[in-house]
């Protein structure tokens, strides 16, 4: 009987260790804890080109992450990309003349949304739209323009 009980305790320990490992992987290694947050409020921004912006890409202000991209969709009437941002609830004082840019982290890095605050005393609320946006810089276009200008200058 004692041996049987010892076996059961060890099996219990083994299974507990397995579940702890799974929990560790889910919480610490994957984005389950970071990506599943439904807290915060939503802002939308319309861009003429989002480049390769992905859902869950960071939204930063002054280089600090204050939210994430919740969805990227296409408006078939205005031919614009509609990006929904979910902003952390603690950041509730974004001026309503804030400028939204799509930046690239490094030359080959991921794209993210950078917000540059304006000077308006009124703040954006849940569901508001950011009026001023700057589309993503497409490297090929820039190189093309640069070459075109050089050729034209000579």
């Amino acid at each position: 009987m004692g041996r049987q009980r010892g076996t059961e305790i060890l099996v219990g320990l083994f299974m507990a260790a397995g579940f702890v490992a799974l929990f560790f992987l889910a919480m610490q290694v994957s984005n389950l804890s970071a990506g599943a947050s439904t807290e915060g409020y939503r802002l939308t921004a319309r861009f003429s080109n989002v480049g390769s912006l992905k859902v869950r890409a960071p939204v930063t202000m002054a280089g600090v992450r204050i939210g994430r991209v919740e969805s990227v969709s296409f408006d078939k009437d205005s031919y614009e990309a509609v990006v929904t941002l979910r902003i952390d609830p603690s950041v509730d004082s974004i001026p309503d003349d804030t400028f939204a840019n799509i930046f690239t982290a490094g030359l080959l890095g991921e794209q993210y949304v950078g917000l540059e605050p304006g000077g308006s005393p009124d703040h954006l609320r849940d569901g508001d739209t950011i009026a001023y946006t700057q589309a993503a810089l497409v490297l090929e276009q820039m190189i093309g323009q640069f070459l075109f200008n050089r050729a034209g200058g000579d």
Binding site: F14, M15, G18, F19, A21, L22, V29
Partner: peptide
């Protein structure tokens, strides 16, 4: 039952 638990332990210890 044991295999996924062992694999999870392997991955967690590996990380």
């Amino acid at each position: 039952i044991a295999m996924p638990l062992l694999a999870a332990i392997f991955s967690a210890v590996g990380v």
